[in-house]
Design a protein around this nucleic acid. Structure first.
Length: 455
RNA sequence: GGCCCGUUGGUCCAGUGGUGAGGACGCCUGACUCUCAAUCAGGAGGCCACCGGUUCGAAUCCGGUACGGGCUGCCA
C-alpha cells in the first residue's frame, strides 16, 4: 500500500509550492487507496507557533485535503518523535556509522581555507565522546538516488561530506529526523520539492544504516517567478491564504496547481479534481521548473466563477461586500456581475454604486467621460429620467434619443451617464444598473454630476 | 568554487524514433454590443537552446557547449 507524506515546517504562511506538493501526494494516496500522512516538522523552535500549524491545516482543508477523509492520517508532530531520533543517532554511533565532532565552523574554514569545501573528516578517528554527531560517508564511489521524475541521479561520494545529524546538545537535525520519521511511519514514496534532491543523497545512506530499505523518491520541479527564481515569500506572492482572500476559488486553485509540472494530456485543462486525480502519475511529472502564472490562474478562476450556480455565486460574494448592504438589491445585479469578475474581490467595484450615497469617482474616469457634450447629454437625460417608463428598454431608448439630437451614438452618449451613475467608465450594463438604482437616486446623481460640471 | 537538475511558440503542458509539432493562458482581428466582460469565428507566434554523433529516419537516443535554476548551515 502506498503511504505518502507531506511534511511542512510551520512558518507564517502556507506556500503555493507546498500546496502543489501536498496535492500531488494527495492524488497519489487517494487514487491508490493509500494513506496521506501529514507531519509537521516543528523541530526548529524558532519557527514554531501553534497558530502556524492551524494555518497549515486550514489551508490544506481549503484545497480539499482534509482530516475527515479516511485517506488522511495525522497530523503528527516531528518534535514528539525526538526520543526515536536520539535513539537512531545512538545506534549509528554504536555501529560506528557516526562519530562525535567538536570542530567549529571557524576551525573548519581555517583548515580548508574555504567556506564551501565541506567537512574534512578531522574528527573521524579522534574517538571523541561528546560534540556534534557526524555521519561517516564513503570516500569513493557514487551514491545513487533513483528518482521517478529524474531517473538515476549520481552523487560522487568524494564530494559528499560527513554531514551532521545531531547538534552538540544532542538534538537531532532535519536529514536524520526526517528519515527516521519516514521509516517509522512506513512511508513508501517520498514526494517533495527539488530542493531536497541533495538531502535524498544523504538519506539514501541513512535509510540502510538504520535498517530500512529506501523508499521511492520523486523530486518535483521548483515553482519560479517571472525572473525564473524559486518563489520566495520575500519577493513573491506565495501565500495560499492571500489568493483565497482575494477571491480565488479553491477548485480553480487546485486545478491550476495540478497543471504546474504535470498535465492530464488531451486537450482539456479545466477539469474537476475527481477527474484529474485518477489521471495523475509521477512518471508524467515534468522535470523543468514551472512559472506561476497568475494571469492563467485568473482565467481559470473566471471559468469556475461562471460555472457557479447563481445562489452560490451570490453567497461567495458576500464576504467582499459590506454587511450593511442590502442583499436583495445585490441579488438583482449579481447575474450581471458573474461573467465579469475573474476574482471574487472584484465584485465590490462593480456594485458599490448601488449602496454608497455617492459613487466612487476617480478623476481619470471622470475626465475621460466628460469630454464630449456632457452637459447637454446629462441635461437631456435628466428630463427623460423624470418621466420615462422605468425599465431598461425605455431607459435605453431615452438616452438613444438624447444622443441622436447631438449627433452621437449610444456608445458615446452613455459615457457621461455611466460615470455620473456609477462613478466608473466600465461596469455592469448601464440601463439595468439604473433600473435597480431607482428613479430618485438616478435623478439625484445626474443632477450632482451636472453641478460638478458647473452647469 | 563544488555537486546536482533543467532547456518544445511569451507562459503552462501534450508529444517518449517515422506523414504538415498539438492544446491551454496571454496577444491580435472580426461578429455581437450601452462600457467591460462572456460567447462565437478567425489569426499571429516554435527551424522543439546550440553543436556534433547514433540511425534509412530524431523534439524524441548519446556526448559536448551555452544559458537558466537548485543545493552547498550544529535551518527545515
Amino acid at each position: 500500500m502506498i503511504r505518502v507524506r507531506f511534511a511542512p515546517s510551520p512558518t507564517g504562511m502556507f506556500h503555493v509550492g507546498g500546496a502543489r506538493t501536498a496535492l500531488f501526494n494527495w492524488a497519489l494516496a487517494e487514487q491508490s487507496g493509500g494513506v496521506f500522512v501529514l507531519r509537521i516538522e516543528d523541530t526548529d523552535a524558532s519557527r514554531n507557533q501553534p497558530e502556524w500549524t492551524e494555518g497549515i491545516i486550514s489551508a490544506l482543508a481549503w484545497i480539499g485535503i482534509n482530516g475527515t477523509n479516511p485517506v488522511f492520517e495525522g497530523p503528527y508532530f516531528q518534535s514528539t518523535f525526538e526520543p526515536q531520533h536520539r535513539e537512531a543517532v545512538a545506534k549509528l554511533l554504536a555501529d560506528g556509522r557516526a562519530y562525535f565532532c567538536d570542530c567549529t565552523r571557524e576551525d573548519l574554514v581555517a583548515r580548508t581555507g574555504s567556506e564551501h569545501k565541506g567537512y574534512d573528516g578531522h574528527c573521524r578517528e579522534r574517538g571523541l565522546s561528546a560534540g556534534a554527531v557526524r555521519f561517516r560517508t564513503p570516500d569513493e564511489g557514487v551514491t545513487v538516488v533513483d528518482d521517478i521524475i529524474r531517473g538515476r541521479v549520481e552523487f560522487p561520494n568524494d564530494a559528499q561530506e560527513d554531514f551532521v545529524i545531531a547538534r552538540t546538545d544532542g538534538s537531532p537535525l532535519y536529514v536524520l529526523a526526517n528519515a527516521v520519521d519516514d521509516i517509522t511511519q512506513n512511508i513508501t514514496h517520498v514526494v517533495r520539492g527539488e530542493e531536497h534532491l541533495g538531502n535524498a543523497a544523504k538519506q539514501v545512506m541513512l535509510w540502510p544504516a538504520l535498517g530500512a530499505t529506501t523508499p521511492v523518491w520523486a523530486h518535483l520541479p521548483v515553482i519560479v517567478n517571472e525572473q525564473r527564481k524559486k518563489l520566495s515569500k520575500r519577493r513573491d506572492k506565495v501565500a495560499l491564504e492571500s489568493y483565497r482572500d482575494e477571491g480565488y476559488l479553491a477548485e480553480a486553485m487546485v486545478n491550476y496547481l495540478m497543471l504546474l509540472g504535470w498535465g492530464p494530456g488531451g486537450d482539456r485543462e479545466i477539469m474537476p479534481w475527481a477527474e484529474m486525480m485518477p489521471l495523475f502519475s509521477l512518471e508524467n511529472v515534468n522535470s523543468a521548473s514551472a512559472f506561476f502564472d497568475e494571469k492563467k490562474l485568473r482565467a481559470f478562476n473566471g471559468e469556475y466563477i461562471r460555472a457557479l450556480p447563481l445562489e452560490i455565486f451570490e453567497e461567495r460574494c458576500l464576504p467582499y461586500l459590506d454587511p450593511s448592504w442590502d442583499a436583495e438589491l445585490f441579488s438583482k445585479v449579481a447575474p450581471l456581475a458573474q461573467t465579469r469578475i475573474p476574482v471574487l474581490s472584484e465584485i465590490r467595484q462593480n456594485v458599490d454604486f448601488l449602496f454608497l450615497d455617492e459613487p466612487v469617482f476617480d478623476e481619470a474616469s471622470w475626465d475621460k467621460a466628460m469630454k464630449k457634450n456632457p452637459v447637454e447629454i446629462l441635461t437631456g437625460y435628466l428630463s427623460a429620467l423624470e418621466v420615462v417608463n422605468w425599465d431598461p428598454e425605455s431607459l435605453k431608448d431615452a438616452l438613444l434619443k438624447v444622443g441622436e439630437e447631438l449627433g452621437m451614438g449610444l456608445s458615446k452618449a452613455q459615457a457621461p451617464v455611466r460615470v455620473a451613475i456609477t462613478g466608473r467608465t466600465v461596469g455592469l450594463p448601464l440601463f439595468e444598473s439604473i433600473e435597480v438604482l431607482g428613479r430618485a437616486k438616478s435623478v439625484e446623481r445626474v443632477r450632482a454630476a451636472l453641478a460638478k460640471l458647473g452647469a
